[in-house]
Write a protein that binds this DNA or RNA. Sequence first.
DNA 1: GATCTCATGTAATCAGTTACATGATTTC
DNA 2: GAAATCATGTAACTGATTACATGAGATC
Lengths: 182, 182
Amino acid sequence: MALQHAILVSLAERSATGYDLARRFDASIGHFWKASHQQIYKVLGRMESDGTVACEVVAQEGRPHKKVYGLTESGREELAAWTSKATPVEHLRSEFAVKLRALPFGDGDAIVDDVRVRRRAHQAQLAYYTESAATYFPRPDELAPEDVGRWLVLRGGILIEQAGLAWCDEILQRLAPDEDER
Amino acid sequence: MALQHAILVSLAERSATGYDLARRFDASIGHFWKASHQQIYKVLGRMESDGTVACEVVAQEGRPHKKVYGLTESGREELAAWTSKATPVEHLRSEFAVKLRALPFGDGDAIVDDVRVRRRAHQAQLAYYTESAATYFPRPDELAPEDVGRWLVLRGGILIEQAGLAWCDEILQRLAPDEDER
DNA sequence: GATCTCATGTAATCAGTTACATGATTTC
DNA sequence: GAAATCATGTAACTGATTACATGAGATC
């Protein structure tokens, strides 16, 4: 149940509505932890019962009312406690790797097409991270202490996407060596 | 429901009991797709109902009887059909990245310890893949066609672990620059 | 007139984890 | 005598996805 902790982190950075959180889990923090709005509302509800978050209902003109959530003291404690205990190393789970192993039993051309799609996705994501890094952290050697975490996360994204891209390139070189790697 | 497809691939390579599959999902294919024996038995049961696999009960002396599963014609078709349609690019999900973002709100020293544990895990996994590659594919330029998939999967493992290792090193350099990276 | 944004949820289902259960043989 | 290996499962629970639901205002 790590969505809970991801929400704690996000609310620690800034209070938000469920809707706001859903958007964050679609971008920024969402690049490393996806969550749908349904799931977020459910977990937020439980967290409110637990007392780690609390909300204030804000009425608006011409817009639905909204519930702005923020961390409680207990939420801040929970977050600190979570950082202080080790997170088990997650093993990777790659449907794509399974598919590669299915090469002798399946459709090679379709798999190559799939690799190309994947390659483009890695490329796009890498470009996005690289741009974000240049925009938000133009001087990585002079980071403010509160920015170090975000910077390191971005670096991780970049390294992982580069690895994914390199993998795709190796695969294409093997399976479709004569073709352009567009 | 991709465990189903992982099982199809594994049984296509060689018929097996649920127990055998559980061991494979603990090693080889398990490096890219983990599954417990409980889950495997459950899914195998469903696949038998669906008719993609069939089993033969084999009695043994001094050992429990066993059910040896293999692909049916329909299973082989299903596997081929699966390879022929694109697999959606899975987004990464990293509790570790979330934790890095929690740096300003938590226990920096504990997080550094966590990074060290992770670094060692990546190192061990990388060593394992590298050794496997050297043992099973000493001449990667002269691979038999049926080995290409397994080789490419191994390469992916190596690239991903290298990226993970590099990430850990960058993090440690930032957060604990004076200490030994043991 | 259609689609997008803001804003909240419920219900059903599926996938995965954890705990529980059994029992013989082989190795330390 | 204890632990590991072989071999099979059931049951309860948690986490995540998908489908369904509503409704106003803003933009194209």
